[in-house]
């Protein structure tokens, strides 16, 4: 149990996928203008990460590894994730239209999100079992949601500022992201201090 908690907190705070490992920067910068959109995107990412891990971990363990097909990992994972996202979207549209309305528009954007592919590959590389893989995916998703929501809050203020002309738009956004990332550095070492 302690180990699971350690993995969860490590992936939410210390190894935050967006601010520390630079995965999923596109949606982080693209959909963070308003807090509610940022939260919607974050929840959709958590959902897709969990579904993707639940599908790719068994494929790697029971299909690719026993038959020596490990080199197909990249191709198989991206195809599985792309197909899965489409499938989930169709199912949601048919059976849970209200959920589809709030999450649906974000789903296609997540297909080629490097955070989702990254978390599935990292779970295999780190040698996690099924349970720890799911916990680490949940942590990564929560970390993404946290970073998105925090940054959306910061950004809604930055949008109203008037920076020097070359800095307006993307540059000032990146510089404010830098300061948010600096804040996350306060968490480094927290895992060894609490669980170590």
């Amino acid at each position: 149990m302690t180990k699971l908690l350690a993995i969860l907190f490590a992936s939410v705070l210390v190894n935050n996928y967006t601010l520390v490992k630079f995965l999923g920067i596109c949606p982080f910068l693209g959909v963070s203008k308003k807090v509610d959109q940022a939260a919607g995107m974050g929840i959709a990412v958590i959902f897709v990460m969990l579904v993707a891990t639940a599908a790719t971990w068994p494929i790697q363990t029971f299909l690719l590894d026993p038959y020596g097909l490990g080199y197909l990992q990249t191709i198989v994972f991206i195809l599985v994730i792309a197909a899965l996202v489409q499938f989930v979207e169709i199912v949601l549209k048919r059976y849970l239209p209200s959920l589809h309305q709030s999450l649906g528009i974000y789903l296609p954007l997540i297909t080629t999100n490097c955070a989702v592919l990254g978390v599935t590959i990292n779970n295999i590389t780190d040698g996690y079992n099924f349970l720890t893989s799911m916990v680490s995916s949940l942590g990564c998703g929560l970390g993404f949601l946290l970073a998105m929501v925090l940054f959306a809050g910061v950004r809604s203020r930055v949008e109203e500022a008037i920076p020097p002309k070359p800095f307006s738009g993307i540059p000032i956004t990146l510089i404010s992201a830098s300061i948010v990332a600096l804040a996350f550095y306060g968490f480094s070492g927290i895992i060894t201090n609490i669980f170590g």
Binding site: F22, P171, L174, I179
Partner: peptide
């Protein structure tokens, strides 16, 4: 060399190129 520096350098570089 850490992540905040990455965002900072990237932002400044885009500003320079746009200038």
């Amino acid at each position: 060399t850490q992540s905040p520096g990455g965002f900072l350098v990237f932002g400044v570089m885009i500003a320079i190129v746009s200038a």
